[in-house]
Amino acid sequence: MVWVNAIVQGLMLGGLFALFACGLSLLFGVVGVINLAHGDFAVLGAYVAVALLPSVHTNALWALLFVPPIFAVFGYGAQRTVLQRSLDTGPLTTLLVTFGLSVVIQNALLEGFSADSHSLSVGALATSAFHPAHGVVVPYLRLAILLTAVAVLGSVQLLLARTSVGRQIRAVADDPEAASVSGVSTRHITGIAAGIAFATVAVAGLAFGMYAQFAPTTGSTWLLYAFEAVIVGGLGSLWGTLAGGCVLGLAQTIGEQIAPTAGTLAVQLVFLAMLAVRPTGLFPARVAV
């Protein structure tokens, strides 16, 4: 039963990884920006909640109502200004610019919130769990995060596949010049795509903040997992990202079951094995999403 429990925990952890990787996958697949500040933006989202919630005891679930919209607007603005300009200069410039943003965000957070770690309070949800079988524990918060990941990835996928905005986003991702001679306002559409990506980053940051403690420099560690989830799942496929997150989550918890300190090592071994055996990922996109 410990193995069943490890698998259940792994899937739920995978939901968190996938939720976190969604924004990275979108911003890279659609906008073409490899966002090295991705993790820091997520941490920034959690800190925005800390700053704007009236007290440390307020249930942080309220932050889900206002932090993602703030981030969507912020993402649109960032795309139309900093990111688009760096894209126009060259693909490597976006790496430098987002790396620079990462440094700026970390230090600004250190300045504003000190190096102490914070957490987001979700009241009883943080500690309650149910036991579907003997020896299997399902904490409500982790289950909620997994369901949120499925909902977020699924709705973004639906938006891309079924809506007019989604078609325009895919067209621009495919060929911006051809899109503009078809009447698509490419920069506006790219901005919207970035806004969506940033909104998911905010959701992920809040989820992480409810799940674990965070400090200004936590983001860089998370970034690695996000990259791995995207690559294991297959670049450009959002369902692949969900699968990639779950694979990494399973590796982590099953690794921990084998030896308590082997979780992270197992994740990296699975990642390396994936690169060696199937470098295109589990579900390489037939189409650029």
Binding site: R167, D174, S182, V287, V289
Partner: peptide, 12 residues
């Protein structure tokens, strides 16, 4: 747009 269907290409 290779990743779109023929219909989606013209619909956009």
């Amino acid at each position: 747009f290779d990743g779109l269907t023929v219909f989606e290409n013209v619909l956009v």
